[in-house]
């Protein structure tokens, strides 16, 4: 078992014919993902990477019945593309694009919540269930089918956690990059719930970073609702206050959102802390051995 995606996932790619979408779709197909079509308005009727291109998500739904969509369109079109996929009743939407205006996300988030849709991202690497399907931009080769569920606000830090758990032979059940924006479609808590009820997941690695209080809220949730061991690493222990560290959401504002506060709260909730990013794998193995 896994969460969100598996071999049966029928994936649609929005912004399909662009260079980034093409590169990553090729890699996803190579990994075994079932891409059933793509959307680029104005290019409907063409064939790209061996599958049909449609002018709209609705046309694609009618013709090839996707049940998930991945979005690569430029930031200024993301609001429209996400809402289009939602309107076409696609229940899992992954938005890779970075730079979506926050006020667009306030509207989008309210709408997808009303419709009961799972939106992952924006500004994220996507989701992968090793050995089953890759819906994202992560390098497939570092993954290994296994028992660790990984949730992260950062793409490249997810890859670190993946590489380390693969090297130690633990492998991953599903990895979800929730993205580095202030208003993510899916929160740590949403994914924690799914991983708690997934049989394949034996331990959960949660990679957080400075800014906001998502980790603190997750800590509270873990304390009361998660029976599986949770290992966490928080990036930005040396970040100065008041500066945005790349991600739109990574800022210590008004003394709130520091790594130290998050680590304290997580520790109090029984989460195992990897002090350094180099220790994520080792710590996970150590914790799993105790269980």
């Amino acid at each position: 078992m896994s969460i969100l995606v598996d071999k049966n996932t029928r994936l649609l790619v929005q912004g399909f014919t662009g260079s980034q979408a093409t590169l990553h779709s090729e890699q996803s197909i190579e990994y075994g993902t079932n891409i059933v079509g793509g959307v680029t308005p104005g290019k409907g009727g063409q064939t790209h990477l061996g599958v049909p291109v449609f002018n709209s998500v609705h046309e694609a739904v009618e013709e090839v019945q996707p049940n998930a969509s991945i979005i690569f369109v430029p930031a200024k079109f993301c609001k429209d593309s996400i809402l289009e996929a939602a309107d076409a009743e696609i229940k899992l939407i992954i938005c890779i694009t970075e730079g979506v205006p926050t006020l667009d996300m306030l509207v989008v988030k309210k709408r997808v919540d009303e419709l009961g849709i799972t939106l992952i991202g924006p500004n994220c690497p996507g989701i992968i269930t090793p050995g089953e399907a890759k819906l994202g931009i992560m390098p497939g080769s570092i993954h290994l089918e296994g028992s660790v569920g990984i949730i992260s606000r950062s793409g490249t830090l997810t890859y670190e956690a993946v590489k380390q758990t693969s090297d130690l032979g633990l492998g991953q059940s599903t990895c979800v990059g929730i993205g580095g924006d202030p208003i993510p479609g899916t929160s740590f808590i949403d994914v924690l719930k799914m991983m708690e009820s997934d049989d394949q997941t034996k331990a959960i690695v949660m990679v957080g970073e400075i800014g906001g209080t998502a980790e603190e809220e997750a800590a509270e949730f873990i304390k009361n609702n998660i029976s599986k061991p949770v290992i966490s690493y928080i990036a930005g222990q040396t970040a100065p206050a008041g500066k945005r560290m790349g991600h739109a959401g990574a800022i210590i504002a008004g003394g709130k959102g520091t790594a130290a506060d998050k680590i304290k709260k997580l520790e109090e909730s029984g989460v195992h802390i990897a002090e350094n990013l180099l220790q994520i794998g080792k710590k996970t193995k150590e914790v799993l051995n105790q269980f």
């Binding site: 992260s152 606000r153 950062s154 793409g155 490249t156 830090l157 890859y159 670190e160 580095g180 990679v207 970073e209 400075i210 690493y233 990036a235 930005g236 222990q237 040396t238 970040a239 560290m245 790349g246 991600h247 990574a250 002090e275 350094n276 990013l277 180099l278």
Partner: peptide, 17 residues
């Protein structure tokens, strides 16, 4: 020089470590 904001912060932390 790092790719990805999270890893860039993680790299700074590692240097400090």
């Amino acid at each position: 020089m790092v790719n990805g904001a999270g890893l860039a912060m993680g790299t700074m932390d590692t240097i400090k470590y």
